[in-house]
Design a protein around this nucleic acid. Structure first.
Ligand SMILES: [Mn+2]
Ligand SMILES: [Mn+2]
Ligand SMILES: [Zn+2]
Ligand SMILES: [Zn+2]
Lengths: 145, 145
DNA sequence: ATCCTATAGATAACCATTCTTGAAAAAGTC
DNA sequence: GACTTTTTCAAGAATGGTTATCTATAGGAT
C-alpha cells in the first residue's frame, strides 16, 4: 500500500509550497510513481494522459517542474537522452544503457566525502556534484559483442 | 613555446585518423587553445572566425566533433549551459559557476577507485562515469549574498 | 452568484545542435 | 597536366526538447 501516507505527504508539500494540487499534477505524479524506470517528459505525458485525458504536453512539463521544485521528484540528465524523472528522492546513482536507453539504480554507492575533497580543491562555493554514469545493460550485453 | 611539438601531435592525430587537417579545423583548434576558459561552440565560432573568416557555425560544430573524436579536445556538459569544449584532455574535473557561467578546473581530485565501486554494484558494463560539478565562483560570491 | 487568481490547453517560439545540399577542393588515374 | 572520383565544406533548413505566450477555465474567497 503506497497510498495513504504518501497522499498526505503530497498534499502537505503542495500546501506548504503554495501551489495547488490539481488533477493534472496528481496524474503526472501518479504516472511517474507507477512507471517502472525513469521516464522522460514525453513518456510521463503518455502515461498521464491515459489516467486523465485532459492533460497536455506543456502541462506535463510545467507539472514536472513544480513537482521537482517542491521536492517530490528529481530530474536527471544524460547527454544523449532527454531529461529523465525519478520519484526516488533518496540520494542514489542511476546508470543509463547506451544501447536501449534503459535507466536503473545503482545501490550501495555513496559519493561520501568526495564532495569534501572537491570543496578542498576549489575556491568555488560548491552547490552540487553529481555523477553521470553510462554503460551497457545485461540484456544488451548478451544480444551481441 | 606551445608551437612545434603540438603542431606535430596535431598533424599526427589527423594523419592516423584519416581526417584531413583543413584550415577551418586548424582555426577551430587554435581558437580553442587560445581561449582562457571552456568556451561553447558559439564562442569558439566567434574566435575562429576572427582567425579565418571562411568558417561557418555549422562547420565549427562539425570540426569540434572531429577534434573530439580524434582525442584532441573534450566536450563537457552542464544542464543549464550549452556544451563546453576543453583542450585539456588530461583527466580532471571542471566546475561551472551558476551565476556567471564561468568554468574552471579543479586540480588534485581524482575519481580514483570510485569507478570500481560503481562496477561492483551494478550488472551493467560501465563505460563512463563523470562528475558534473556546479557552484559559485569567488567573484560572484563577493558580489552579494 | 460574482470576483479573483492560479492553472490549463493550444500553439508558437526558442535554442543548441544536426542534417541536407550543392559547390569546391583533394586525391587518384592516366 | 587533364580528367574522374571521392571527400569536405559552407550555408541554411530542419529537428527535438523545452519554454513562453495567450486565452479560456476552474475553483476558492467574499
Ligand atoms: Mn533513480
Ligand atoms: Mn577543463
Ligand atoms: Zn540495454
Ligand atoms: Zn561566477
Amino acid at each position: 500500500m503506497v497510498g495513504a501516507v504518501e497522499r498526505d505527504e503530497v498534499r502537505e508539500r503542495f500546501r506548504r509550497s503554495g501551489y495547488t494540487l490539481t488533477s493534472q499534477r496528481r496524474a503526472v505524479l501518479e504516472a511517474l510513481r507507477d512507471s517502472e524506470g525513469h521516464p522522460s517528459a514525453e513518456e510521463v505525458y503518455l502515461a498521464a494522459k491515459s489516467r486523465n485525458p485532459k492533460v497536455a504536453l506543456g502541462t506535463v512539463y510545467q507539472a514536472l517542474s513544480v513537482l521537482e521544485e517542491i521536492g517530490l521528484i528529481e530530474a536527471k540528465r544524460w547527454s544523449e537522452s532527454p531529461v529523465r524523472y525519478d520519484v526516488n528522492t533518496e540520494p542514489h546513482h542511476d546508470i543509463r544503457c547506451t544501447r536501449c536507453d534503459a535507466v536503473e539504480e545503482i545501490p550501495g554507492v555513496d559519493l561520501g566525502d568526495f564532495a569534501a575533497h572537491i570543496r578542498e580543491n576549489t575556491p568555488y562555493d560548491v552547490t552540487s556534484a553529481s555523477l553521470v554514469i553510462e554503460g551497457v545493460c545485461p540484456a544488451c550485453q548478451t544480444q551481441d559483442g
